[in-house]
Simulated assay, not measured.
Amino acid sequence: MINALTAFGLAIGWMDIVGVLCFELVMFYMMRRRRLDEKVDDKVDLPSLEEQPVDHKTRNSLPNLLSRKQMMESENAWIFWGYLLMLNMWIAVCLLMIAGITMHKPELMTIYLIWCFCGLVIDVLMIIWWIFELFVGDAIVAMTNILISILTFAVELAFVLIIYAIYLNLSWSPDADNDKVTSYFHWLLLE
């Protein structure tokens, strides 16, 4: 039998996997669409660079983070394959976490906890970056990204606490039916 918190942990794992697969499909769609747009742009005659006036006032003093307009095609390809590798590693980590819960092996869940902790550190670094961007770049984009990063941090922290509670439950006893995890989780909410 599985208690409610363990079932919620399994739901978190499967939800992560479905979300990652959807994100990968969106990435493939965007890259395909971009390549089709580039083929159309190649067929259209564009004026030469000498004919286009350069307005130095509209240039930003610092480029936006990963701005596609200011990056070369090879850099975009590296970022795409880097994201793809990271997303597939995320799927593998989630599968390890699910296996750890279903087979009552908490050591398999440690990789997921380390992965999420690293994600929390990256979220904090991104919040710091967007606060810096708020003062030197586009304030509306920076505020939107700060709010998204804070929301991501909160959701990931909740996932870490839930999976850590399940990890403690499986570590304390090979029997998953005890109520220690429930009392620990209530203690976390009350603190």
Rank of each mutant, 00 (worst) to 15 (best):
D41M: 13
S149A: 11
Q70R: 14
L134G: 02
M109R: 01
K57Q: 15
I163Q: 08
S149P: 00
I131P: 02
M27T: 04
C118R: 08
E156G: 13
I148F: 07
W90S: 09
P47I: 02
C116Q: 08
A154H: 02
L120R: 05
N178R: 07
M109D: 02
D55C: 07
K39M: 06
I128K: 06
V181Q: 09
E38W: 00
K105Q: 14
F132E: 02
E24V: 15
W115E: 05
P47S: 02
F153G: 06
W129Y: 12
L125T: 05
M30H: 15
I166D: 01
L62D: 06
N76A: 10
G82R: 03
Y167N: 07
D175L: 05
D175A: 01
W187N: 07
P106Q: 01
D175F: 00
L188C: 03
R33Y: 10
L46A: 10
E73M: 15
K69L: 10
Y83W: 13
M30W: 07
L134Y: 09
L85G: 08
F23Y: 11
A4P: 02
S74Q: 07
L188A: 01
N76F: 09
L157I: 01
V155C: 06
F185L: 06
V160M: 06
L134P: 00
K69T: 10
V160I: 08
V26F: 08
L21W: 03
L21P: 09
E191R: 09
I131C: 14
I122H: 12
C116I: 15
T6V: 13
A154M: 08
P47V: 05
L66W: 06
H104M: 04
L190D: 08
I17K: 04
L87H: 14
N169P: 10
L113F: 04
I146A: 01
E38C: 07
D175G: 00
L168A: 09
I91Q: 01
M103E: 10
R33P: 00
F185C: 02
F117G: 09
F117C: 04
I150R: 00
V141T: 11
L5H: 05
M72T: 14
M109Q: 03
